[in-house]
Nucleic acid binder design. Structure first.
Lengths: 336, 336
DNA sequence: CTGTCCTCTGACAACGTTGTCAACCCCCAA
DNA sequence: TTGGGGGTTGACAACGTTGTCAGAGGACAG
């Protein structure tokens, strides 16, 4: 990439001072029409684009119209939907998104935070990995950098928007219990992930409320394939196996559905899945889910973040977006 | 956000010149151990982070470790998967991703390109919207800015990585024809989208190769809901309706599957879908697909882009990633 | 003991932009 | 005719960093 034209280059071509070009480029008034036209022509000829770094440097301390989004896994449909919701909001505020994905690695998360901070983003939206922030993120929190956490409690006081994991899991589990199940399997993804821990807690609470209810727990089902295998193992011995499953995360849910179908058990083993599943209503039986509202989560998070960036210094807020169970058949199967 | 500490602030605290701090921060040698320790302590105390804008400005013309990714729709699973593949590659090259989504709007695409260029990204990866680039993008191409296009032919000479849309559509359609169908419906998303045009072309070619084959074409099915409705309409009059469907895009495919199931036609009307569908093997019958290899597409695109950034000045390359049909049942249904 | 070289440190300019201020020109009123 | 004022334009500093260069001081050889 060759060097780009600067204000000075344009000025030279137009035969004026570079400050005048700056005025034209920024649409400031106090430039005569003739001068404006002459400069504009030179700008177009050279294809001048303002150097954002120089501008940012000059106006350091001010907002620059960029926020950083730190994902745990951008390929997760929930994360992608949240991303889109944030972007939609940001666009209305003339703000761009820098983004990165940590693959659930706290160190990579810190590296991203440092890279974003070095670029002097106006603020950060973080879907936190691990159970607590790394040193870099912690320091930014302390500095008062505008930060909003999404989907998972970061374990520190800060703005946070998340679904009601615990209540969703509790109602999913209660739903299964209400349909007569007493042996229920819990399928979780990364055990370290706080949101999953919350769902686990909701599950446990519901199970404890019924005498004699027996839990079977499988965690660290971090991909569709792993979850699929786990369910196969679970039903290798039908005698001890649960009669219903609560899949606490979308990938685990997909794996579970797949395995149940492969085993021909989809009409016998009840299933409730946390999070949205694309064609939950097409499979037979339809999959009862507790879908998250990614749009709402993303939008509320963006609102909080931009409020902070705008100078809001109130106490940290915690927004819990409710979730509601959607019956589609799989969760209403009764034990044989 | 209050102002951040600068080299000068650290220098003052440590009682040295700011140039010495610069040396320590950059790990340059020629600093005595005692000095290094003293400075490092001050750096840690203040939580100094280098100002990327200033660094970028000073070394203008050099690479800065940021690339811009312009999506047409980041929430599309294919795009998200490509994004992730690019990021994985970029991370190995110490490069960050700036990203934005155009919602298929050429003007928004140009706005994003300008914003990225203003930030002096090292290069751009673009999933192009519309059928030709806007003026800003066009200018960057002319400037020789490293740019790689993904998934869709942009209509200009430039590096390009895409799936073999035409061949995939042709083989999908031939597959249906080979199973005895002569009335086949084409379900397309945005008609302006080049990749969809290519799939349409492949479909037409296959249809023309068989005497008496009748096409029914529905396009601009831009969401699952719209596609669903279109399929309902298509089968309002069973007499004239096709006996098989080729869904040329993932959202259209999902809509089609949903409608067929609602109509109870999933065992009568054959269906082949372009692109990956998450639980294609779970529904009954399984959905025969022509999946794209998003990982491969993203990786190859990143390779091309980084080669350009690295100075490769060879002629523009066009990489076509093959696609292969996967039989799962829905595409092998024969007409009644 | 002196000169030379090497190590460490600092002064200064420059990157491209914007804010401040001064200078200029022309017009109009006294 | 002259002075003042408004409208334009330009000179210059500053943002925070890195590259260049020079200077200070110590070690070592002659």
């Amino acid at each position: 990439m060759q060097t780009r034209p600067t204000l000075k280059d344009v000025a030279e071509l137009a035969g004026v001072s570079f400050k005048t070009v700056s005025r034209v480029v920024n649409g400031e008034n106090g430039v005569s029409p003739a001068m404006h036209a002459k400069v504009q022509e030179a700008v177009d000829t050279l294809g001048y684009r303002r150097n954002h770094s120089a501008q940012a440097l000059r106006k350091s301390g001010q907002r620059l119209g960029t926020i950083g989004v730190v994902h745990a896994d951008i390929a997760n449909p929930f994360a992608a939907a949240v991303h889109q919701a944030i972007e939609r909001y940001a666009r209305d505020h003339d703000t761009l998104l820098l983004s990165g994905s940590t693959t659930e690695d706290v160190e990579q998360q810190d590296r991203l935070v440092e890279a974003f901070v070095a670029r002097r983003v106006d603020g950060l939206a973080v879907i936190p990995s691990g159970d607590e922030p790394g040193p870099a993120l912690r320091q930014e929190l302390q500095r008062g950098t505008p930060i909003v956490f999404i989907d998972r409690d970061p374990g520190v006081r800060a703005d946070l928007v998340l679904s009601d994991h615990r209540d969703g899991a509790r109602s999913a589990t209660s739903h299964l219990l209400a349909h007569g199940h007493t042996r229920i399997g819990f399928l979780g993804s990364r055990e370290q992930t706080v949101s999953v821990q919350q769902r686990r807690r909701g599950f446990d609470e519901a199970m404890r409320s019924v005498d004699g209810a027996i839990s079977t727990v499988r965690t660290d089902l971090t991909s569709v394939a792993v979850a699929e295998r786990a369910v196969h193992e679970l039903f290798a011995d039908r005698g001890a196996a649960p009669t219903a499953l609560f899949a606490a995360q979308n990938l685990a849910a997909t794996g579970a559905v797949r395995a149940l179908h492969q085993l021909g058990l989809q009409h016998e083993i009840a299933l409730v899945a946390f999070d949205h599943i694309e064609i939950a209503d097409i499979v037979e039986p339809g999959i009862t889910t507790v879908p998250q509202n990614a749009d709402e989560v993303g939008r509320r998070a963006a609102e909080l973040l931009f409020a902070r960036i705008g100078g809001n210094a109130n106490e940290a807020q915690r927004i819990v977006v409710p979730v509601d169970l959607v019956e589609r058949g799989s969760g209403e199967l009764r034990p044989r």
